[in-house]
Simulated scan of single mutants.
Amino acid sequence: MAKVDKSWDITENGTDLDKAKELIANREIPATEIAKISKVPRGSISNYRNGITSIDKASWKVVKRLAGTRDLLKYRDQVATRSFSLFVEDFNSWFKNASESNVENDDPMTEVIKSLHSYVSTDPILMAHLYQHYALR
């Protein structure tokens, strides 16, 4: 049987599997907190931590949830700032202006811009990544 590559989402922070492993290895974060955020049972998290079950054999859904939880915990202090709120205001304003200018020109990109705004603005991890670029200017 061929080896399955679990590199579903590769970013500068590694794959989702790398992120899940990092979260599981960080014993400073209680299993109960990880379970509450990720919706992965606390018993499963304990089994991964204690080597009873290998995270390498976890389902894609579990790995994705754990990776998302790791990202959320990593960025939660950053997004609870006034600077992040200003970024969100600027971000929303830019998309509003872009879509309004295209509506006036009957541009078919209007719906694309609106959809893009909707997808991006509802993804807290993506917004946190974008904020890092904004904050560096």
Rank of each mutant, 00 (worst) to 15 (best):
I125L: 14
R82F: 08
G68S: 12
L116D: 01
A80T: 11
D123V: 10
H129Y: 12
S54E: 15
Y131C: 04
S121N: 13
V112N: 05
S46F: 15
Y119L: 08
T69K: 04
D106A: 12
D106G: 07
R70M: 09
F95Q: 00
R76N: 13
D71W: 05
S83C: 08
I52W: 09
S121M: 08
D107V: 00
A58R: 02
A58N: 06
K114Y: 05
I52C: 07
R42T: 14
R65A: 15
V88Y: 09
S85M: 14
T69H: 05
T69Y: 01
I113C: 05
M109W: 05
F87C: 02
D107R: 01
D107A: 03
S99D: 03
L66N: 00
M109L: 09
V103P: 00
S99T: 10
F87E: 02
Y119C: 04
A58E: 02
K39G: 11
S85A: 15
M127T: 00
T110G: 02
K74A: 09
A98G: 06
S101H: 08
T110M: 06
S46N: 14
V103R: 12
S44A: 13
V79G: 03
T110P: 00
V63I: 15
H133P: 04
F95S: 00
R49I: 05
H129K: 15
K96Q: 09
T110K: 03
L116K: 06
S54N: 15
N92P: 05
S93K: 15
K61W: 10
N102F: 04
W94C: 07
R70F: 12
T122G: 14
D107T: 01
K74T: 13
I113P: 03
T110N: 06
R70A: 05
